[in-house]
Write a protein that binds this DNA or RNA. Structure first.
Length: 266
DNA sequence: ATGGTCGGTCTCCGA
């Protein structure tokens, strides 16, 4: 089974790229983030004609996650029960950051869009840390209930876990994505039993999944590795290969993130 | 100048 994650930065703007990506790489299950649409705004005709089922969770123009699957999509859940909703106060913004389904022979895949954090002194940063902690707690509970569970936590984590995961640490001094608390929160999810399925096959610096639209970051190879597929032990043992589709970042109409693909054989 | 760009509720905001 070939699974993938991709921050699409608007599904409506890139539906044809999604379809071409699925068919080019023969992808079975794709988790999307930042679909920036409510489900009723999506025209899913082409995907359905290509044999895919779709579940989308979007509440407004921000955020939004989706699952696209050709191997059956069932037991769909929106939002981790323990994950707090931003904000608890007056802004009225409603978030849609997590969606899961069971695909194929009992693989649960979560499509996750971790809060960005904005600035270190912004309330959104504390929200990001709380959100990651809630994810860790939920993931740990699930594995305690069934250590053999086939679970993947995939998506845009908005954290670069190691110095090698950004092009220049000096640039990120005082910025989000690389701070010790964010990295600790990410490692806590890993420590709960969900290992990075891609990194072992792609070591060293310069392995990125995101390049800012601004400042010619892509041609200058100045990116970040912030999109991950994390898997429970049963999934880790099933990994056969993985790759980042850098080609998808090229050309007019690209998302600012590249898809990440993992092959599993249970 | 660590700039330059995207998408969407579009002359602002969030990323």
């Amino acid at each position: 089974m070939r699974i993938a994650t991709w921050n699409i930065n608007s599904l409506r703007a890139r539906m044809e790229r999604v379809l071409a990506f699925l068919e080019r790489h023969d992808v079975d299950v794709l988790a999307l983030q930042e679909i920036k649409a409510k489900p009723e705004q999506l025209d899913l005709t082409l995907l359905q004609e290509a044999g895919y089922e779709v579940s989308a969770h979007g509440l407004n123009q921000w955020n939004g996650v989706a699952l696209i699957s050709r191997v059956g999509l069932r037991d769909v859940r929106t939002e981790l029960p323990a994950v707090p909703t931003w904000p608890e106060d007056e802004s009225g913004v409603i978030e849609a950051r997590a969606l899961s389904g069971v695909v194929g022979d009992g693989l649960r895949i979560w499509s996750l869009y971790v809060p960005n954090g904005r600035e270190l002194d912004h309330p959104h940063y504390a929200y990001k840390l709380r959100w990651l902690e809630a994810l860790r707690a939920e993931g740990q509970r699930d594995l305690a209930a069934d250590p053999q569970a086939r679970t993947v936590l995939v998506g845009d984590f908005n954290v670069a876990p190691e110095d090698d995961d950004v092009w220049d640490m000096a640039f990120f001094d005082g910025k989000t994505h690389v701070t010790e608390p964010e990295r600790a929160a990410f490692q806590a999810v890993v420590g709960a039993g969900y290992a990075d399925l891609v990194r072992p096959d792609h070591p060293g610096p310069g392995i990125y999944t995101y390049w800012d639209y601004q400042a010619l970051r892509f041609p200058k190879k100045e990116g970040m590795r912030i999109d991950f597929l994390l898997g429970s032990p049963a999934v880790q043992a099933a990994v056969r290969e993985s790759f980042i589709d850098r080609e998808e970042r090229k050309g007019k109409g690209a998302s600012d993130h590249a898809p990440v693909v993992v092959d599993l054989e249970f």
